[in-house]
Computed example of a mutant assay.
Amino acid sequence: MNLEHKKQEVAPFSVFILRIVRYSLFALMLIFISVLIGVIGYRYFGKLNWVDSFYMSCMILTGMGPVADMTTKGAKLFSSFYALYSGVAFLSITAVFFTPIIHRLLHILHVEETERQT
């Protein structure tokens, strides 16, 4: 997933769209893996059914907070570590998703600035 260097021209729009699709798919894969970790953990440690595990995992991953009470020490520990992981994962996945857009904007601004100087 290479991006053009600041001395290169701005990529064509079709390349930009393809790049957005690739980065979006990668972000979706990270979301899927993160939710899967949560579902399996809440199913195993929290003894929740599959739907409740999915619901709890999604709520924690998006920062909305827990919806079920964890009663065992293992469930509380998993929930705590999953919440810490989710905070970092959410910010990282957001960064991955917006990388091509921000890069293109900054690249266009840099090219315009360079053209004005010459």
Score class of each variant (00 low, 15 high):
G46H: 07
H110S: 15
I17H: 02
L106P: 06
V21C: 14
F16Y: 15
L3H: 13
G74F: 14
I31L: 09
R43S: 15
L109Y: 15
N2F: 05
A83H: 07
M56Y: 02
M70F: 08
Y55H: 06
I101M: 10
K76M: 12
L36Y: 02
A68R: 08
S53K: 09
G74C: 06
K7W: 13
Y42I: 01
S53P: 05
H107D: 02
Y44I: 13
L109F: 14
E9I: 02
G38F: 00
I40G: 02
G65D: 08
V51M: 10
S86V: 03
W50A: 14
F97N: 10
M64N: 04
P100W: 01
I33M: 00
G46A: 02
L109K: 10
F98I: 15
F98Y: 12
T62N: 11
L61Q: 12
A75F: 11
Y85P: 00
Y55R: 04
V67L: 08
R43L: 15
V10G: 02
F26Q: 04
V88K: 04
T99S: 09
S14M: 01
L105E: 12
A89G: 08
C58W: 05
P100Y: 06
V88W: 10
S24I: 09
I17A: 02
R104L: 15
R19D: 10
T114W: 09
G38Q: 03
M29I: 13
A75N: 03
V39F: 00
G41N: 01
L105R: 08
V88P: 03
F97D: 08
G87S: 10
V39A: 02
A95C: 07
R104Q: 11
A95G: 09
